[in-house]
């Protein structure tokens, strides 16, 4: 029996799965055309203050007149909406997409927290037994929709608040027309430094541009010099050393530094 190959069949692939994926990418690229700078905020570990630093830096930038958005890419542990006082919905559906909520100081926010019923973990409808097969794809698609289906409009800066680990950064980089700039948050300890090193290396291997390091929770129980060490190792600036409960001028300073770095 002779069966022609896929490529020998010259009529178009009506299913066009690849074409549909390309259309999704175009949608993302068009959406981001109005965004001046996209900054992915990452760390190796959870609980080091990524979301806290992101929210306060975003607010400080907005206070000096920049148009700022925060996309909460931590789908399973979303905190950006609470930090930016933008938990209360509903999100308005417009012809061309979902409108982001407007939070403190005018920062635009989209977070899974706005969409889930109180206290509910993120779960998807579908065959539970095999969820390990498709859950990753569903989360990546949710991220894509947060980027591409939200009317972000013209922004000076869009922060993407990432969960700990590497997976979401990879998904983000995959989506974007160009690899994002990366703002890295660490606490002073060597342990956090190790985790950040791994994450940052992987990001740079994907073509990301390091924007700088923020050392958070400085001057308390956490002892170490991870911020300086990482900055030296990666040849990137230590943008700020943020103490516990910093004063507004710390954020103002950091916002200015970030603005000048991108």
């Amino acid at each position: 029996m002779h069966i022609r190959t896929y490529h020998e069949l010259t009529e178009p692939d009506r299913s066009g799965l690849a074409a549909q994926i390309m259309a999704q990418r175009r949608r993302v690229a068009q959406r981001l055309a109005g965004v001046g700078r996209l900054i992915a905020v990452m760390s190796g570990k959870g609980g080091v203050g990524k979301s806290y630093v992101t929210a306060h830096a975003a607010r400080a930038l907005a206070r000096v007149g920049r148009r700022v958005g925060v996309l909460d890419a931590d789908l399973n542990g979303p905190t950006a909406a609470r930090l930016l006082e933008a938990r209360d919905g509903p999100l308005a559906v417009r012809e061309d997409g979902i409108e982001p909520a407007v939070g403190a100081d005018g920062v635009r926010v989209v977070s899974m927290d706005q969409l889930l019923a109180d206290g509910r973990p993120l779960a998807f409808r579908g065959p539970e037994a095999e969820s390990f097969v498709w859950r990753g794809a569903a989360e990546a698609a949710a991220l894509r929709e947060f980027v591409g289906d939200v009317t972000w409009g013209a922004l000076d800066v869009l922060f993407v608040d990432l969960p700990p680990g590497l997976a979401r950064f990879q998904e983000l980089a995959e989506l974007l027309p160009a690899a994002p700039a990366v703002l890295t948050v660490t606490i002073p300890t060597a342990e956090s430094g190790d985790a950040v090193r791994r994450a940052l290396r992987a990001a740079l291997e994907r073509g990301a541009r390091p924007l700088g390091i923020v050392e958070n929770m400085v001057g308390g129980a956490f002892v170490g010099v991870a911020g300086d060490t990482l900055a030296r190792e990666f040849g990137t600036p230590l943008l700020a050393r943020v103490p516990w409960h910093p004063t507004p001028d710390v954020w103002h300073q950091l916002a200015e530094t970030i603005w000048n770095a991108v």
Partner: peptide, 19 residues
Amino acid sequence: PMEMVRGMVAGGKEDAFED
């Protein structure tokens, strides 16, 4: 807009979106 999230997320807030 957000077809996958709106169609597949279980336990979503009733009034998360306003059409």
